[in-house]
């Protein structure tokens, strides 16, 4: 197998606190993506998903302290300065953001916002780049793209704006696309179409996709592989179908139970008891132990190691072995 496209090794992200000290958020995170791979990263809000994507983009807030390695096309992104990162951002790694309402510049036409990256990276003239922007708008299925290119973001609906966001991200045909909750802010009817456009473009351009979502349905639809995060730690990883049909970690099971579905008995919606604890108040041992339904005394003794009880699967739970043999 050739060298992976993205190889994250032992990534730790901590936030420097105003009153001194550091608060660790992401801990010992590793993840490998081959070219064209699609991986979904799932977890509740506050699980460190977004920080992970910003770390790959080199756009972490100044208060963040990072260690570990993020190898992309063989280069360690964490060792690059901002100029070096600017060469990769947009050109080799594209990113789609969560809020289409605020992610576009209100004072610039959408055509220019798409063209901008092309002017910067492909050294096109503004006119040539604007023509390309019209083509890109057409590819994300904006009707009448020539006229819409000179529209401002506020003249578009949320779904259209998110499609502009996609057009910006795919403009330079990056090798890796990071989408951070790309459909969370959209109406359900619009979600499906935006996902289809994204899926279609990723396949046609053979882009690898790192999709961040709290929505298991979106992940199941878009991603071959799934990584489950909780409190900045990997809880489980594997082929999406395998993880969703045979979860090994009680946290993944809880997430699956909490997916609303139509049922005959019309019972109350399942939830995971409690909420994600603040990073400053994590329980001893396994970080999920205070909410886990299968907790035993040994869970609090120490943080469980990352193990691979089945080929292609990874899990962080001391009781995962029982699950496999059962």
């Amino acid at each position: 197998m050739s060298a992976p496209l993205l190889d994250i090794q032992g990534l730790n992200i901590a936030m420097r606190l105003a009153r001194g000290g550091r608060l660790p958020i992401v801990n010992d995170l590793s993840l490998t993506l081959q070219a064209g791979d699609t991986v979904g990263i799932v977890g509740e809000s506050g699980s460190g998903k977004s920080l992970l994507s910003l770390a790959v983009m080199g756009l972490l807030p100044p208060a963040a302290v990072v260690s570990g390695r993020i190898l992309f096309e063989g280069r360690d992104l964490l060792s690059l300065d901002d100029d070096g990162m600017s060469e990769i951002r947009g050109r080799r790694i594209g990113m789609i953001f969560q809020e289409p309402m605020t992610a576009l510049n209100p004072a610039m036409t959408v055509g220019d916002q798409i063209a901008e990256g092309l002017v910067r990276h492909e050294k096109l003239s503004w006119n040539a780049a604007r023509d390309r922007a019209v083509e890109l708008l057409d590819r994300v299925r904006i009707p009448d793209p020539k006229a819409r290119a000179s529209a401002y973001p506020h003249q578009m609906s949320g779904g259209q704006r998110q499609r502009v966001g996609i057009a910006i991200a795919v403009a330079m045909r990056p090798a890796l696309m990071i989408a951070d909750e790309p459909t969370t802010a959209l109406d359900v009817t619009v979600q499906a179409e935006v996902l289809e456009i994204l899926d279609d473009l990723c396949q046609r351009e053979s882009m690898a996709l790192m999709l961040i979502s709290h929505d298991l349905g979106v992940i199941a639809r878009m991603c071959a592989r799934t990584l489950v995060l909780y409190a900045g730690r990997r809880m489980e990883e594997g082929a999406t179908r395998a993880v969703l049909t045979g979860p090994l970690n009680p946290y993944t099971k809880g997430l699956l139970r909490a997916v609303p579905r139509r049922r005959a008995d019309d019972g109350p919606l399942e939830t995971i008891p409690g909420s994600v604890p603040g990073f400053a108040r994590l329980p001893a041992g396994c970080v999920f132990s205070d909410r886990c339904l299968d907790v035993v005394a040994a869970c609090q003794a120490g943080e469980p190691a990352w193990t691979s009880p089945l080929p292609g699967r990874g899990v962080r739970c001391i009781r995962a072995g029982e699950e496999v043999s059962a």
Binding site: D82, E87, G90, F97, E99, A103, L104, N105, G117, H121
Partner: peptide, 23 residues
């Protein structure tokens, strides 16, 4: 957020500052 979008396109800090933020 749109300043972050501009940075994610690979625009250098200086261009982002004047073209997007100051504007």
């Amino acid at each position: 957020d749109f300043v972050r979008t501009a940075r994610a396109k690979g625009l250098p800090k200086r261009v982002t500052l004047w073209r997007h933020a100051v504007r």
